[in-house]
Simulated scan of single mutants.
Amino acid sequence: MLYADLHTHTSASDGTQPSSENIRLAVKAGLAGIAITDHDTVAGIDEALEAGSQSGITVIPGVEISTVFEGQDIHVLGYWIDHTNPLFLSRLTSLRDVREQRNVMMIERLNELGLQVTMEDVWASLETSKKADETIGRPHIADALLKKGYVSSIAEAFDRYLGNGAAAYVNPPRIEPFTAIEWILEAGGVPVLAHPGLYDLDELIPRLADVGLAGLEVYHSDHSPEQEKHYQSIAEQLGLIMTGGSDFHGERGGVVFHAPVGARKVEMSVVKQLAEAKRTTTKQMPSDNTEEA
């Protein structure tokens, strides 16, 4: 049986290594496919495609778009996107601008709590330098807190300061998941709701399905067996593709976050289902690339 890990991150967003290393790890894990799904950027995809062609592994171009619904972070995965489309790239730039605003707000909140950390500290803690189309997120801030000795682990940084509802958590206005689905469809991609077990908003799933959601990430490193059964049932009821992945971010502080490449995987038949959905459900990207992002 051939398998794919459909959720991995690279140093283009908040992973710790280049996408070519994700491909190497996928080959080492015996996978036949892997998706690159960085937060609000597609900067790691070309390198992954090149490495995949050399390694004989299928690379699915993807993205993980950050949205908010009723104050809750909601992430929408997009598979088989046209990662070169100018309008889609412009829209991702707008999301990264909000992400930068959020980083500054979190640093300010940490300072108010007495933690002397700056964005310069965050930049200094990066494993590699960042390009303009790459992103910085909470794991990078957590890494800076770890290196300055304010926390003993990345998990503690999220639990005490950066996680949803924690002391320094902020959530500036962002697009809603409905908009992310529209953008993914218009970019020729297939929208899938990421790790629904982290939201406690099951009532949102049918509404997203009504506007084009094609899949549900049933299998995720942070889902319990009970949650997987629960979301299997919802996916079956709504006719959604059941995807899964490790949500690999690399290693920080000696710990892999969330899980190693291939720790959660699905059969390659799911990759085929996503490809079929791309051919039958995606919209045509608007020809007017001057549309505001």
Rank of each mutant, 00 (worst) to 15 (best):
V76E: 01
R102N: 05
K148C: 09
L126Q: 12
V76R: 09
G165Q: 10
E108F: 03
I81A: 12
L95H: 13
D121V: 01
P139I: 13
Q116C: 00
K148Q: 12
V170A: 13
I136Y: 06
L77V: 11
I141Q: 12
F158E: 05
T118G: 00
Y79S: 05
R109P: 03
E70W: 00
M106I: 15
I154Q: 01
S153K: 02
K148S: 05
S94T: 04
I81W: 08
L89D: 09
N103G: 08
A167L: 15
Y169L: 02
L113C: 11
L113S: 03
L115I: 12
G71R: 11
D143I: 02
I154E: 05
I141W: 11
Y161G: 02
G163C: 06
E156A: 05
L113N: 06
L89Y: 07
G114F: 05
T118I: 03
D133F: 01
L77Y: 13
R99V: 04
A155E: 12
A167C: 06
L115P: 07
H75C: 03
G149H: 03
K148L: 14
S153W: 01
V76M: 09
P86D: 07
W80R: 06
T135P: 12
G114H: 12
A166I: 01
A157D: 00
R99K: 10
F69S: 05
V104S: 07
G149W: 03
S125A: 15
L115A: 04
V151C: 02
L115D: 02
P86V: 14
M105K: 15
F158S: 04
A167H: 03
D133A: 14
F88Q: 08
R109G: 01
P139L: 14
I74A: 07
L162N: 07
G78T: 11
V76T: 13
N111P: 06
T135D: 12
S152P: 00
G114Q: 12
L89G: 07
V151Q: 04
N103H: 02
A144I: 01
L126Y: 06
T93G: 10
G78C: 12
R91I: 10
L92K: 12
D121I: 01
R91G: 08
D82T: 08
N111G: 13
E70M: 04
S152A: 13
N103C: 09
S90F: 07
D121C: 00
I81P: 10
L145F: 03
R160I: 00
V117A: 06
D121G: 04
A166M: 01
D121K: 02
D133R: 05
A168S: 14
E108S: 12
R160A: 09
V117Q: 05
T93D: 11
A167V: 02
N111Q: 15
F158T: 07
A142Y: 02
M106G: 04
A144L: 05
K131M: 13
W80E: 12
G71H: 09
L110S: 06
M119K: 11
A144V: 06
W80H: 14
D82K: 10
E100W: 15
E70R: 14
A157N: 01
H83I: 08
A166C: 09
L146R: 13
N85I: 05
H75Y: 09
Q72W: 08
F69A: 11
Y150L: 01
G149N: 03
Q116T: 07
F88D: 04
P86M: 10
E108W: 02
P139E: 13
E127M: 07
I107M: 00
T118P: 03
N85G: 09
H83W: 15
F69C: 01
L110F: 03
R91F: 02
I74M: 10
